[in-house]
Structures are given as C-alpha cells and as structure tokens.
Amino acid sequence: MAGGTERAKSYMATGAYVGCIKILLTVYNFVFWITGIAVLVLGIWIVAGLQKYTELLDGYPSAATWAIIGTGAAIVIIASFACYCTFKGYGRLLYIYAAFLMVVFLAELAAGATFLVFKGQVQTSLKTGMNNTMNSYTDGSDNAMDKVQQSIKCCGINSYVDWYYTKYDKNTEKPNTVKVPKSCCVTSSNCSNTNLPLNLNQTSASIYVEGCHRKIVSGMEGNIAIIGSAVLGFSFLQLLGSVLACCLGKGINKAKYEQVA
C-alpha cells in the first residue's frame, strides 16, 4: 500500500515537472519563432539594404549571409512544429528538436564569428574591391561604384583623382586631367565630368570631391559588428531551448514509465 502511495506521489511530482517544463518550452518556442523572424529579416536586410556596399568588398562572406537567411526560415518552420510536439508530448520528436537546436546554434555561431572576424578586414577588403571595380568600369554598366557614389555623394576611393589611375581614364583628351563617371556629378545637368584638374583645390563644385572609402568603412564596420553580435546573441538562445526540450523529453518518458509501473 505504501509502495503504491509512493509511486502515486512520484507520478504526480513528475506530472507537475512535465507541466512546468511544457509551459517554459511553449514560451521558449514562441520566443524562438520571433527570433527566427528577426534572423530572417536581418539576412534579407543584409542582401537588400547593404548590397551596394557588399558588392565592393573583396572576399565578403556572402555564404554567411545566405546561411543567416536559411537559418531564419528554418527556425520559423521548426518552431511552429515544435509547439505541436510540446503540446502532444512526443518524447522522441523533442529529442530531435533539441538536436536541431544544436545545429542551429553551431550555424549561427559560425556565421556570427565570421562577420566579427571579417570586421577587422573591412578597410583592406573595401580598398581592394573598389580598385577592382573601378578598373573594370565602363559607361552604362550596372556598376556598384555608380550606386555608391550616387547614394552617399562621393567619388573615387580617397578622392575623385583616383579615377586618373584606372583604365576608365586612359582615353582622356587632355594630359594631366581626369575623367570621372557621371555618378560623381552633384547634379545631372550642366555637369563637367571630363578634363578635370588633378589639383583638388581647382575642382569645380559640379562633382563630389570626397572619396567613398572613409564614408563606407565608418558605416560598414558598425553594421558588420551589429550583425555579428546579433547573430551570436541569437545563437546562445538555442542552447536554452535544447536543454528545455531534452528535459521535457526525459520527463515525458519517465512519466510514461511510472504510469506503466
């Protein structure tokens, strides 16, 4: 009789434990789902909002960006499925869910670390990428330099004179003058973008004199640091979910065993 009472108490305690973990995991699943949307939006923002800058970065880790988008989309789907598993109490599926969370943790950890490491290479990478882009520039091409020069009101790397040392300026009509793309013009009308003096002090106000490199670096380093930190922060959330899923799976299996016993 005493043994039956003890088993009943143990079963009730396990049931209370399972119920508590279910609530915690349900709350986590909702937060996890929101996190997935946030990660997905972050990845889309990198591709859509920063593309004109990332195109100029030599060695930019584009694979990490797509990994963020893929991970975000997967999180949204799996979090929805996890809610069903939590309510139904499927122990085996909860263990699979825990394993998936560990995979997500590792993927986000790698992507976040990649961005933080790349942050220290932005200045060199950008200068190399801009040099390559400027040397391959032709009028009328869909060039990343045009997008950047127009959007942040700059010209060249350090100044518009940088175009003098590119293949684009090899057919300048007058020696010791520089030709720049029309995207360097302050206004599209009445803009002189050819035969410009190499002396910055003699340049007319019709083109942007300041270079793009410093402007881009100041923004990109901050953005990349935010991206890397955000992804790393999200990644450690998966560890908590993995622990909760394992605890619930273990509790459910124990409750089933006690019920049978």
Rank of each mutant, 00 (worst) to 15 (best):
N135E: 08
C191E: 08
L116A: 05
V260Y: 11
G233P: 07
L25F: 13
F100M: 13
S80Y: 11
S159I: 00
A13K: 15
K254V: 04
N135F: 01
Y208S: 02
K170D: 10
V217L: 05
V161K: 03
T172P: 02
F81M: 12
S141H: 06
K174R: 11
N195S: 12
S136A: 14
L126D: 04
T166I: 00
K250Q: 11
Q121M: 11
N199G: 03
V39S: 03
S183F: 10
A111T: 10
N201T: 13
C191F: 05
F234A: 11
S10L: 13
L198Q: 02
K182T: 14
A82V: 01
L200E: 10
V260M: 09
A111E: 04
C85A: 15
V260F: 10
V47P: 05
L198N: 01
L40V: 06
I152V: 15
A225D: 04
A113V: 15
Y53M: 03
I44H: 08
L248G: 08
E258I: 15
I78S: 01
S141I: 08
G91R: 09
A111N: 08
Y165T: 07
V117S: 09
N223Y: 14
D146L: 07
P197M: 04
I152L: 11
T65M: 09
Y165E: 08
L106M: 12
V186R: 12
G251Y: 04
V47W: 10
G4R: 15
K174E: 09
G120T: 14
A144E: 02
I252P: 01
D58W: 03
E55D: 13
G72I: 01
V103N: 03
G70C: 04
I46T: 03
F32C: 06
L50F: 10
F115N: 01
I69M: 09
S183L: 08
S192G: 06
E55C: 06
E258Y: 15
E258M: 15
G91Q: 08
A38I: 10
T65L: 07
P197L: 00
C154R: 00
Y160N: 00
M12C: 12
L239C: 06
T187Y: 07
V186C: 02
S159D: 12
R214L: 07
A67K: 03
A107N: 09
S206I: 09
V31G: 04
N158M: 06
V104F: 11
A261C: 10
K215H: 05
S125M: 02
T14C: 13
Y257Q: 14
V186Y: 06
V18A: 12
E6P: 06
L198S: 01
Y84K: 02
Q123T: 13
A8R: 14
S10W: 08
C191M: 07
E258T: 12
L25I: 08
T187S: 14
R7T: 13
F234R: 04
F115T: 05
V47C: 07
S206K: 12
G89Q: 03
T187R: 11
M130W: 00
G249C: 10
G156R: 01
N135P: 00
I152C: 05
A255V: 00
